[in-house]
């Protein structure tokens, strides 16, 4: 068993889990943070994207043990009370979702992209969201939302 201590959305958490436990399973099953979705479980779709020490990672392709001591932010940690994060607000305003399953991952990937590149071009948005798939193919509005978020966060 692995003893894991980490900070999730600003709260210190400690759990003892099997060594093979994935970070996404720690978040969902042990901490009840089911906003992070498991889409493919094969590192393709990016639904499970969270931030580990400030960087976007696929939490289905990282062991919980590898996140020991890390600072993790999930979709639940983005809003401040009732105030949505500008990326969340932009996804809402631009209707950048259809079924919504990929949305938490898209938002986390977008927030990471904008941190690195606050004013991305269309090409840079496509490249920056390459690790996330929307099976409804709602990409046009997703790109719109990224641009709106970039404007708001200027």
């Amino acid at each position: 068993m692995a003893k894991i201590e980490l900070t999730v959305n600003g709260t210190r958490e400690a759990r003892e889990v099997e060594d093979r436990t994935l970070l996404v399973d720690l978040l969902r099953d042990h901490l009840g943070l089911t906003g992070t979705h498991i889409g493919c479980d094969t590192s393709q779709c990016g639904c499970c994207t969270v931030h580990v020490d400030g960087r976007a990672v696929k939490s289905c392709t990282m062991l919980a043990a590898q996140a020991n001591g890390a600072t993790v932010v999930t979709i639940e940690g983005m809003a401040k009370g009732d105030q949505l994060h500008p990326v969340q607000q932009a996804f809402t305003d631009c209707h950048a979702l259809q079924c919504g399953f990929c949305t938490p991952g898209m938002i986390m990937a977008t927030a990471a992209l904008l941190k690195d590149n606050p004013q991305p071009t269309d090409e840079e948005i496509y490249h920056g969201l390459e690790g996330n798939l929307c099976r409804c193919t709602g990409y046009i509005n997703i790109v719109k939302a990224v641009k709106q978020a970039a404007e708001t966060m200027k």
Binding site: S43, G46, T49, K58, G128, N132
Partner: peptide, 9 residues
Amino acid sequence: IGDPQVRNR
């Protein structure tokens, strides 16, 4: 290489 999440790890 891969995608941003892969490049981060």
